[in-house]
Amino acid sequence: MGTVDSKDGTTITYTRYGSGPAVVLVDGALAAQEFGPNKALAEALSSRYTVYTYDRRGRGGSGDNRPVDVEREFEDLDAVIGLGAEPVMLYGISSGGGLILDWLLSGRSARKVALYEVPFVVDDTRPPLPADYVEHLNSLLAQGKSGAAIKYFMRQGVRLPALMVAAFPFFPGWSHLKTVAPTMAYDIQYVAEFQRGRELPTARWAGLDLPVTIIVGSKSPAWIRNANAALAAAIPGAEHRILPGQTHLVKAAALAPALIEFYG
């Protein structure tokens, strides 16, 4: 692992794999380099690319200067991208894809962008977020109720079954989740606006001018498949790809070939 300083001086921890054209992988909510899917994906891509994973601020070995401001996360991504010697390609999973979309809308650009299952909600195939979801989640976090915040996020945001969520404290990764729970305040800013069960504002992404692929798993719930089809339709020229047999917990062995085909 190495470190790089973000613009505000926050230390961001990263890992570099392989050699070749540069690819940066962006985690979704609660994930980090040692707790999430991107480590296996980086290893699967490393024979063809120089792959960078990193701990988003507040996770793993990275610092976090408050207050929460998504521009700081954009600058963190800038810092990691700056490690490469050429325009990089990006990959984001779940709310990490939402981060990349907002990073692009801030006026930044990349060579190519691949997104996996950005968790928008665009129809009635699942209940939308509660009207006070963002306020309630932030309130729990502000009170230091990390466990309650995680359960609320998993139940209302992810829509996991109640019995599964109740069992979370008994899972091996519970201590990690509680440690990084405050970072959910970042993730909800990238996706909550579009989790209300309404059509996407297609004009929002109409100005994006780069190759984009939107990928989903065939076994993922209808709500997330429908949302990503709508997202692909809203981005000019975007590809839409379905991986047979995959869910939101996508396997690197299934995803890597699709990314290699897209990145070239």
Rank of each mutant, 00 (worst) to 15 (best):
T3R: 03
T3E: 15
S6C: 05
T13V: 15
Y17F: 15
S19Q: 10
V26W: 12
D27T: 14
D27H: 15
D27K: 00
G28R: 08
G28S: 09
G28L: 14
L30D: 08
A31Q: 15
A32I: 02
Q33K: 03
E34P: 00
P37Y: 04
K39Q: 14
L41N: 06
L41V: 07
A42R: 02
S46G: 00
R48S: 14
V51T: 01
Y52T: 06
Y52K: 08
T53H: 13
T53R: 04
R56P: 06
R59Y: 14
G61I: 13
D64C: 10
D64R: 03
D64S: 06
N65C: 00
R66W: 14
V70Q: 09
E75F: 12
E75L: 10
D76P: 13
A79Q: 09
V80G: 01
V80K: 00
I81R: 15
L83H: 11
P87M: 08
M89R: 12
M89H: 11
L90R: 02
Y91N: 03
I93C: 08
G96C: 11
G97R: 00
G97T: 07
I100H: 04
I100R: 07
L101Y: 13
D102N: 09
W103G: 08
L104M: 15
S106F: 02
G107T: 01
G107M: 09
G107I: 07
R108T: 09
S109R: 14
S109P: 09
A110L: 03
A110Y: 01
R111V: 06
L115I: 13
V121E: 03
V122C: 06
V122M: 02
P128G: 10
P130I: 04
Y133E: 06
H136S: 08
L140Q: 06
L141W: 11
A142H: 12
A142K: 14
Q143G: 15
G147Q: 10
I150D: 08
K151L: 13
Y152G: 01
M154W: 02
M154A: 15
Q156L: 14
Q156W: 15
G157S: 06
P161Y: 05
M164E: 07
A167M: 15
P169Y: 02
P169S: 11
S175P: 00
H176P: 09
T183C: 11
M184C: 10
A185R: 14
Y186F: 15
I188S: 03
I188P: 05
V191M: 01
Q195P: 05
E199M: 05
L200T: 05
L200N: 09
T202N: 13
T202V: 14
R204S: 06
R204Q: 10
A206R: 10
L208F: 04
D209G: 02
P211F: 00
V216M: 10
V216W: 08
S218W: 13
S220K: 07
P221Y: 12
W223E: 09
I224G: 10
R225E: 04
N226L: 05
N226K: 05
N228S: 12
A233T: 00
A234G: 12
G237M: 06
A238W: 07
R241I: 13
P244D: 06
P244I: 10
Q246D: 11
T247A: 05
H248V: 12
H248S: 11
A256F: 02
A256I: 09
I260D: 04
I260R: 03
